[in-house]
Write a protein that binds this DNA or RNA. Sequence first.
DNA 1: TTGGCGTTATGCGTTTTTGGTATAACCAGC
DNA 2: GCTGGTTATACCAAAAACGCATAACGCCAA
Lengths: 116, 116
Amino acid sequence: MSAPGSVIQVRSKIWLEINGEPVFGQGREELLRLVQKNGSINAAAKAMGITYRKAWTYIDAMEKRLGFPLVNRLKGGPGGGESTLTPQAEMFLEKFDILRQGFNETVNRKFMELDF
Amino acid sequence: MSAPGSVIQVRSKIWLEINGEPVFGQGREELLRLVQKNGSINAAAKAMGITYRKAWTYIDAMEKRLGFPLVNRLKGGPGGGESTLTPQAEMFLEKFDILRQGFNETVNRKFMELDF
DNA sequence: TTGGCGTTATGCGTTTTTGGTATAACCAGC
DNA sequence: GCTGGTTATACCAAAAACGCATAACGCCAA
């Protein structure tokens, strides 16, 4: 039972919302991790294959909705500027990682059993 | 650790894709169930609070991507027309329901333990 | 036979969202 | 002051979503 010549696959997603608006998901998590790793929003965006504009918009929206900063930004300076994560952002990353642990795997296993 | 005066909540989603395009999710499942219950796309749309146009577009896209019909449609006739689900659509509903069984509950339980 | 009714079906303009490009602001070092 | 690399934002373009308007259809009642 599947479409002719095509393969059906299951996908799943967890995210956090505040007032019905997304504040944290897998894409945003990856973005923050790359900011943490690279020390720059710009470099993180490049690593993810998205524009700086998009990355900045994501972070800005997250912060506005949460009501506290996730990224400490510096304009100018030695390397032109830099960005680091706030302690609150790091705690978010940690907890969110636990939340989604094993999540996709569980879904995929159940999916295999069903023979879609 | 949450935004001042607001409540963070976790949300999750499962859906099926074919060639990277969504063919089945919770909204579409509900739509099909309402078609099944009401015998009409129009009534189902109203029950969901969406326009007929939108409901029709969803179903049309699903069928195009899957490559087989989900809804048997009748134009004109006793009540002006009617729509019923194909056997394939009913099987989809059944399997998808199993797939997502307990899913949200599991996520929510884990979320509570973490104290976001 | 003809007009009305309630559905399915779809064209098309409008609105909203999203994306990308260009440009300014910033600051250490040379 | 000029350069380099970053953050920040304005502004226009493209795309997607939305919804209104209208046609097609076939029973049924008049």
